[in-house]
């Protein structure tokens, strides 16, 4: 246990963080350079004002027509993404570990709230799974990798919840929790999870074309 723990909580964290950061930078720089080479017009039309207008519009719940058309999906998707980021970053236990390593600390969530937020993430993953299986238009688009990604996202939250509540096997769950967290970090730049990296650019470009060239709104 000690040996495994030391590896997963030491060198593997560094490895995952480095792959995540360098991988993300590589993807963004590579895409930027490819755009400059093959789609240089993208940069000519990018407008800061219209990019931000579009980005802000799409990160506000129910601000776009399609969000209003799918209220449940909107609520779930927003709750999911907020919790997905807030829980790992503002979890007391994580901050304790970071404080132990580097003596830095920041505001953290009360545990019961983090607990509920974790359940929200897990519940949302089940909801997304349900959509993939039950809605015809989503099932048609779904590939095997979509399930893997969904499982990958849910894993750190399921294991984290398990470990926190000390259900049978919580030691194993804790180790799996760390490993699955590392896996998802590594996955971000190289799977469809890269939508996290590209969202502002895609939205910004769409917003610029709609706003600056076409004088229309894109929501």
């Amino acid at each position: 246990m000690h040996a495994i723990y030391e590896i997963v909580s030491g060198p593997m964290v560094w490895l995952a963080a480095i792959i995540f950061i360098l991988g993300s930078l590589y993807r963004l720089i590579f895409m930027g350079r490819l755009a400059a080479k093959k789609d240089p017009m993208v940069f000519s039309y990018l407008s800061v004002y219209y990019s931000l207008r579009s980005i802000f519009h799409w990160i506000i719940p129910f601000a776009s027509v399609n969000m209003r058309k799918h209220p449940i999906m909107t609520v779930v998707a927003f709750a999911f993404h907020i919790c997905l980021f807030a829980v790992p970053i503002f979890l007391c236990a994580h901050i304790i570990l970071i404080n132990e390593a580097w003596q830095v600390k920041w505001w953290y969530l009360p545990n019961p709230i983090a607990d509920v937020m974790t359940l929200i993430v897990i519940g949302a993953c089940i909801f997304f799974l349900g959509r993939r299986l039950l809605l015809r238009e989503v099932r048609y688009l779904t590939t095997f990798s979509d399930f893997l990604i969904l499982a990958g996202v849910a894993a750190p939250f399921v294991t984290g919840f398990w470990s926190y509540h000390q259900y049978p096997g919580h030691e194993t769950a804790a180790i799996l929790h760390i490993i699955s967290g590392e896996i998802i970090l590594v996955m971000i730049p190289f799977t469809r999870l890269s939508h996290m990296l590209f969202f502002p650019f895609l939205r910004g470009y769409a917003g610029s074309e709609f706003g600056a060239v076409r004088n229309a709104v894109d929501w």
């Binding site: 755009a35 999906m73 959509r131 238009e137 989503v138 890269s194 969202f199």
Partner: peptide
């Protein structure tokens, strides 16, 4: 180019 690549790789298959 980047547009084609990013569009295809980013689509989350959400069906929206």
């Amino acid at each position: 180019g980047a547009r084609l690549k990013t569009y295809i790789e980013t689509c989350a298959h959400c069906g929206l």
